[in-house]
Amino acid sequence: MTDENRYCGMAALTICESLLLALNDHKVLTESEILGVLRDAAATHENDDGADAEAHKAVARIIRKIDSGGNSARRP
Score class of each variant (00 low, 15 high):
Glu4Arg: 14
Thr2Ala: 08
Asp25Glu: 12
Asp52His: 04
Ser18Cys: 05
Glu46Leu: 12
Ala58Asp: 09
Ala73Tyr: 13
Glu46Thr: 06
Ala55Pro: 02
Ser68Met: 01
Ala12Cys: 06
Thr14Met: 14
His45Ser: 02
Cys8Met: 15
Arg39Gln: 15
Ala53Ile: 01
Ala22Lys: 13
Asp25Leu: 10
Asp3Trp: 11
Ala41Gly: 08
Arg75Leu: 09
Gly70Glu: 00
Ala41Val: 11
Asn24Thr: 13
Thr14Tyr: 08
Leu19Asp: 13
Asp49Gly: 10
Asp67His: 13
Ala73Thr: 09
Leu35Thr: 02
Arg39Lys: 14
Asp67Ser: 11
Arg61Trp: 07
Leu29Cys: 09
Val59Leu: 13
Ile15Pro: 01
Leu21Met: 01
Ser18Lys: 05
Ala41Thr: 10
Ala11Phe: 03
Leu23Gly: 06
Glu4Ile: 15
Ala12His: 07
His56Trp: 00
Val59Thr: 12
Cys16Leu: 15
Leu29Ser: 01
Met10Gly: 07
Cys8Tyr: 15
Asp3Leu: 13
Ala42Ser: 05
Glu17Cys: 09
Ala43Pro: 01
Val28Cys: 02
His26Thr: 09
Ser72Asp: 11
Leu13Gly: 15
His26Arg: 10
Leu19Trp: 07
Ala22Thr: 12
Glu46Lys: 06
Ser68Asn: 03
Glu54Pro: 00
Lys27Ala: 06
Asn24Leu: 05
Ile63Glu: 07
Thr30Leu: 01
Asp49Ile: 09
Ala41Glu: 05
Glu54Leu: 12
Ala55Phe: 11
Leu23Val: 03
Ile15His: 08
Ala42Glu: 00
Asp52Leu: 09
Ser32His: 03
Asp40Cys: 03
Met1Trp: 09
Cys16Asp: 13
Thr30Phe: 03
Leu20Gly: 01
Glu33Asp: 12
His56Lys: 04
Met1Gln: 12
Ala73Leu: 12
Ala55Tyr: 03
Gly70Tyr: 02
Gly36Ile: 00
Ala41Lys: 05
Ile66Arg: 07
Ile63Arg: 02
Asp25Gly: 04
Ser32Phe: 04
Glu46Asn: 06
Leu19Arg: 09
Glu46His: 08
Cys16Asn: 13
Leu38His: 00
Gly9Val: 06
Ile66Glu: 04
Thr14Gln: 12
Asp3Ile: 08
Asn47Cys: 09
Ser18Pro: 00
Glu54Asn: 11
Glu4Val: 13
Ala42Gly: 01
Glu33Phe: 00
Arg6Ile: 07
Ile62Phe: 09
Ile34Gln: 00
Thr2Glu: 11
Leu13Val: 08
Ile63Ala: 00
Glu17Ser: 09
Thr44Ser: 05
Cys8Thr: 15
Pro76Thr: 08
Thr44Glu: 07
Leu23Arg: 08
Leu20Val: 07
Arg39Trp: 05
Leu19Cys: 11
Gly9Glu: 14
Gly70Arg: 00
